[in-house]
Amino acid sequence: MTSIQHSSPALVPSETAPGLRHLPLPLFAVPMGLGGLAMTWREASVMLGAPAVIGEGLMLATGVFWCIIFIGHALRVLRHPEALVSDLKHPIRSAFAGGLSIGLMIIAGGFLPYSFDLAAVIWGVAVAIHLTIGAYIVRGLLVSPREAATLTPPLLLPLVGNVLAPVIGAKLGFITVSWMLFGLGALLWVIVQPLILYRISTGPILPAKMWPTLVILLAPPAVGSLALALLTDGFGPGPLAIYGYAVLVAAVMLLMMSKFRSVPFAMSWWGYTFPSAAFVTASMKAAHAHPFPLMEPALWLLVAFITVVVTLVFAATLKAFFAGHLFLPE
């Protein structure tokens, strides 16, 4: 009887609780990045004749990692509800909750070729969650005004992420709702992004660890051009105008490469992935509608670039996980 009493605490290792308590909310950026790359390779299979199995394999990995991370956070809620509440009240970390629903939207797109009904259900759930998170963030901005220093690019995730919904919703036939979501995301983009740019340009300077999140500024125009192209049945003047802005932002980000390379690994590195993948996908769509000389080699170069970026970030994340550096207090 004594031995049973002494052995029971070993069923739950003492290290488990602290690690789970500090499970990063930004981990939901992992399936976002993998899903963005999956969408790129799916488009490459159509545009460039790339092996379809690569895109499908990446989409499967997206679903697997989303489920693992979701289960981890569900356990965190059960064991350490105060930790999640703290994240949701945090002026910067709370924005990463939008990654949960954005990842689910991408998964809905992953199911689209295989089960229309299942894709529609997942998409509907994802949109409902995303709108709820967005409403919570806006409420927080109104009830508890924040300092200008906390206006950072991740704030675009739960607010402007609505522009991603039509990329899948239009294919599912939800045109009216998709237009509404696109309008919501586009208007919030027009309102929120200038505030973020003003805060960044006037200071205080972003901490070095936050620099990779600047690439999130590329996501709204890249995804927005894709969404508008689907809603208007072609890469016409509207999508091209938005894509042109995405090209400018992408050029600025490339000019900042030396700064990005100086940033030690943090979960913010995943900020490089989804926006860049969305830009490559938009570039393929734009090139398909408006071909140019040496188009195919240029597009392959973009696909290779984003594949290397996601691979390096994923490898760095695995290294941090196995070294025990991933689940640490912020």
Score class of each variant (00 low, 15 high):
135 A>D: 05
193 Q>D: 10
50 A>N: 08
53 V>S: 14
58 L>Y: 00
29 A>I: 02
171 K>P: 11
191 I>V: 15
138 V>W: 09
122 I>C: 02
159 L>I: 12
185 G>S: 07
113 P>L: 01
305 F>S: 12
316 A>S: 15
4 I>H: 12
67 C>N: 07
119 A>M: 04
252 V>Q: 09
190 V>W: 04
130 H>C: 04
271 G>D: 14
229 A>W: 08
79 R>P: 00
223 V>L: 04
67 C>G: 10
301 L>F: 01
328 L>N: 11
278 A>L: 07
76 R>K: 10
95 A>L: 05
136 Y>N: 07
64 V>H: 01
312 L>M: 15
60 L>D: 10
242 I>E: 05
18 P>F: 06
204 P>K: 04
26 P>S: 02
34 L>P: 00
203 G>F: 04
108 A>K: 08
292 F>D: 02
132 T>V: 03
247 V>T: 11
147 E>I: 05
52 A>T: 15
326 L>I: 01
151 L>H: 13
70 F>D: 09
137 I>F: 12
228 L>K: 01
259 K>S: 15
23 L>N: 02
26 P>R: 05
65 F>D: 00
307 T>I: 00
115 S>A: 13
205 I>Y: 07
158 P>C: 08
196 I>C: 02
235 F>N: 04
146 R>H: 14
49 G>P: 05
13 P>D: 01
76 R>G: 00
268 S>P: 07
22 H>C: 04
139 R>I: 07
263 V>A: 07
7 S>W: 13
223 V>N: 08
56 E>S: 13
51 P>S: 02
303 V>F: 06
243 Y>I: 03
236 G>I: 11
112 L>D: 01
185 G>T: 11
251 A>W: 09
268 S>V: 05
131 L>Q: 10
157 L>D: 04
161 G>N: 08
288 H>S: 10
223 V>M: 07
84 L>Y: 09
208 A>H: 10
95 A>D: 04
283 S>E: 05
303 V>W: 02
313 V>R: 11
132 T>S: 15
132 T>H: 13
168 I>A: 09
127 V>C: 08
234 G>Q: 02
162 N>L: 13
241 A>C: 06
162 N>F: 14
245 Y>T: 11
82 E>G: 10
202 T>W: 03
285 K>S: 14
139 R>C: 02
326 L>F: 07
45 S>D: 15
85 V>W: 09
176 T>M: 13
274 F>N: 08
308 V>A: 15
183 G>R: 00
261 R>A: 14
109 G>S: 09
68 I>N: 02
40 T>F: 01
249 V>S: 03
179 W>L: 09
246 A>W: 01
143 V>T: 14
139 R>E: 05
326 L>A: 00
78 L>R: 12
68 I>V: 15
170 A>H: 06
234 G>L: 00
185 G>L: 08
117 D>Y: 11
190 V>S: 11
42 R>N: 12
115 S>N: 15
90 H>F: 00
2 T>L: 05
165 A>H: 11
66 W>L: 06
4 I>Q: 13
206 L>N: 01
277 A>Y: 11
281 T>I: 08
167 V>Q: 06
292 F>P: 03
195 L>S: 11
252 V>T: 13
37 L>H: 01
143 V>G: 10
219 A>C: 06
304 A>P: 03
269 W>F: 14
319 K>V: 12
93 R>V: 14
135 A>T: 10
250 A>L: 03
72 G>R: 04
121 V>H: 01
43 E>W: 09
43 E>M: 12
